[in-house]
Simulated assay, not measured.
Amino acid sequence: MWQWLTAAVSSPGSHADDYHERNNYLFFYEKMESLVEAAWIMKRQTGSIINPVSQPPGTARNKLVQPTAKVAQPARFSKPARLIEKATSHPDEVIAEVFSHTPFDELQEYLLPNWLRVALINNMSPYTAAIDREILFEFHDQLLPFVEAVYCKSENSPHFTPVYLNEEQLADPSLVITSFFQQCPIEYTRRELADFLEAGIGYEGQYPNGFSPWQAWMVYNHILCLVEAAYQLYLNQQMQPVTHVLSQQIVELEEAG
């Protein structure tokens, strides 16, 4: 645990660069150390005296740890909702925020291609089998027009030269999004992205073009947010005809009554 803590607080560009976050890490580590120690004592209750590492010899007693009453969760242990948590309730805002953090061109021209390249050259990844690499290629090919279509639907009012979408798809990007989820079910997409991430951060060789494990993690989070938000929009669109029919039926019943 100590190695994890030191790695977390010393990692450049991590959340621990912030003073308050670093204090939270240290406080969390201290509480976890006490919790692990208490669990170890309970596990080793065999009649002998236990000397926990955080207490001097002779101060511990061989007794069961008594449960304590539940207390209200301190305000200290709170975090703002992560972007992915808002995908269901505010999908449009999530999409707009992703593209405000990462420019669309950078995502399409640098991050996604280099992530794919690392995943394919990583010999210790989920894509060591030829069939798995082939499927990843196909998934990546589906992902590029999907991201472009999601960008078209974003609140950023994009003005760009499309690469993957034709005129019909530009006029109605939801066609591409619908096609994506029909070919790549959401369960499969989540699992494929998880394997993609593993391949991207687990490479032990030299990363190409300045790409890094941190960038693989970042682009994974951004793509996952886009997928989850777009999936919610897709579900909403699929439900519109049903909702419309139900509304009409309710009106007819009210008029008949």
Rank of each mutant, 00 (worst) to 15 (best):
residue 119 A to W: 00
residue 12 P to V: 00
residue 50 I to F: 10
residue 94 V to P: 04
residue 93 E to K: 11
residue 131 I to E: 15
residue 133 R to G: 12
residue 10 S to K: 12
residue 175 L to D: 02
residue 78 S to E: 15
residue 229 A to D: 05
residue 92 D to L: 04
residue 8 A to T: 15
residue 50 I to C: 00
residue 68 T to Y: 12
residue 243 T to Q: 15
residue 38 A to C: 03
residue 97 E to V: 02
residue 213 P to W: 09
residue 158 P to C: 00
residue 97 E to P: 05
residue 173 P to R: 02
residue 101 H to D: 13
residue 97 E to C: 01
residue 170 L to V: 05
residue 87 A to P: 07
residue 238 Q to F: 00
residue 105 D to S: 13
residue 59 T to I: 12
residue 172 D to Q: 04
residue 5 L to I: 05
residue 155 E to T: 14
residue 56 P to D: 15
residue 49 I to S: 04
residue 134 E to F: 12
residue 79 K to W: 15
residue 247 S to Y: 10
residue 241 P to R: 06
residue 180 F to A: 06
residue 38 A to W: 03
residue 78 S to A: 15
residue 162 P to S: 08
residue 16 A to I: 05
residue 203 Y to H: 13
residue 83 L to F: 01
residue 161 T to I: 08
residue 28 F to H: 10
residue 113 P to K: 02
residue 163 V to E: 09
residue 137 F to R: 11
residue 146 F to K: 05
residue 179 S to K: 01
residue 190 R to D: 12
residue 15 H to P: 11
residue 146 F to A: 03
residue 257 G to D: 09
residue 100 S to A: 11
residue 16 A to T: 00
residue 55 Q to R: 04
residue 214 W to Q: 13
residue 198 E to F: 08
residue 191 R to A: 13
residue 76 R to N: 02
residue 203 Y to E: 03
residue 91 P to C: 05
residue 185 P to I: 02
residue 202 G to K: 05
residue 56 P to E: 15
residue 70 K to Q: 13
residue 150 V to K: 03
residue 12 P to Q: 06
residue 63 K to H: 06
residue 76 R to M: 02
residue 37 E to V: 03
residue 206 Q to K: 14
residue 192 E to T: 15
residue 80 P to N: 09
residue 252 E to W: 06
residue 204 E to K: 14
residue 2 W to I: 14
residue 51 N to D: 08
residue 70 K to E: 09
residue 131 I to L: 09
residue 250 I to D: 02
residue 41 I to Y: 01
residue 73 Q to T: 10
residue 33 E to S: 13
residue 249 Q to W: 07
residue 96 A to M: 06
residue 40 W to R: 14
residue 89 S to F: 15
residue 228 E to R: 11
residue 123 N to F: 11
residue 10 S to D: 13
residue 78 S to K: 14
residue 23 N to C: 11
residue 56 P to V: 15
residue 80 P to W: 04
residue 137 F to S: 08
residue 246 L to N: 06
